[in-house]
């Protein structure tokens, strides 16, 4: 199926500069080489990614190909073996706190009520709790969380917990968000709803999003652009960006759910699947 090496050039035309154009990208990974163990095993080799302002980009790859490792390096939690992280052109390599990162689980603190969970980034930054609540509470309605302010996380459904985690991520106040398989823990119907909701929300709020997923449907539904990561680091083959393709998303405001039923969607999905081999 996959005649690997050759594909990345002719994969899909018109991708490249995408939304970025000549402007400085919101976030850029330049020449990432990453390792789990200080260089003994190379997980990802020479990977470069860009994320334009307000853009949604998905990074697709099989499980274990190093997607999360890339996000960790982009978030500043780890420092890449080689390569740099540029945020609006400024080097922030190895410095956490500049981009919002939503990890795979919702990670709400069980001992805090939803409003206090959501306020956490503000409180950590030194804002008094009362001010933080006053800032967060008006947003509950918009994030579909009205009425949950005083509840404990354990009283919420998976989808609602995820919304709360999104609101917390938003309140981190960065214009770049990294998502690690954000919807994988949800049931299929909730997942579809949440994807559409997130895309709409992030566009309204002007957040640039880089999401990683192994779900091709999810990538094509959400993304403006898709990077396909290919490799098997456990078998000694470091992952590289196999291709970068633009999703032919209709600009007439078709909802992601409706887009998913069009031939253009299926065509794009087929291409990604082929690239993944």
């Amino acid at each position: 199926m996959a005649d690997a090496g050759e594909k990345d050039v002719d994969a899909v035309a018109g991708a490249g500069a995408g939304a970025g154009g000549a402007a400085v990208p919101a976030l850029e990974a330049r020449g990432f080489t990453l390792s789990w163990d200080e260089g003994e095993h190379i997980v990802v080799e020479d990977v470069s990614l860009t994320l334009g302002a307000g853009e949604v980009v998905c990074l697709v790859g099989r499980s274990g190909c190093g997607k999360t490792t890339i996000l960790h390096a982009l978030s500043g939690l780890t420092t890449p073996l080689r390569g740099r992280v540029l945020l609006h052109g400024t080097d922030v390599t190895g410095q956490p706190g500049h981009v919002s990162y939503m990890l795979q689980k919702d990670l709400l603190l069980p001992n805090k009520r939803i409003v206090d969970n959501v306020c956490l980034p503000l409180v950590l930054a030194g804002m008094p709790a009362a001010d933080a609540r006053a800032k967060a509470e008006p947003l509950f309605e918009r994030f579909g969380l009205a009425g949950t302010e005083r509840m404990w996380p354990s009283e919420l459904s998976g989808g609602m917990r995820q919304r709360a985690a999104f609101l917390r991520t938003y309140l981190m106040g960065n214009d770049v968000t990294l998502l690690d398989e954000p919807f994988s823990a949800l049931d299929a119907l909730t997942r579809t709803d949440m994807r559409s909701w997130y895309c709409q929300m992030s566009r309204e709020l002007g957040m640039a999003t880089l999401a990683i997923t192994h779900d091709v449907d999810e990538a094509v539904t959400m993304a403006d652009r898709i990077y396909v990561l290919q490799g098997d680091p456990r078998a000694g083959v470091p992952s590289r960006v196999e291709a970068e393709l633009a999703v032919p998303r209709p600009s007439d405001g078709t909802s992601p759910a409706d887009f998913a039923l069009t031939p253009a969607f299926l065509d794009c999905k087929r291409k990604v699947l082929e690239l993944l081999g």
């Binding site: 500043g76 939690l77 990162y101 990890l103 689980k105 990670l107 001992n111 956490l120 950590l124 930054a125």
Partner: peptide, 29 residues
Amino acid sequence: VDPDLIDLMRTMNATRWQIFWKVKLPAAL
């Protein structure tokens, strides 16, 4: 304590003291 929770706190620029007070201690209660 879930190590991911500590990573999350670090992405929010939490200090070691904040991580202990807000995450570790409640988790150990």
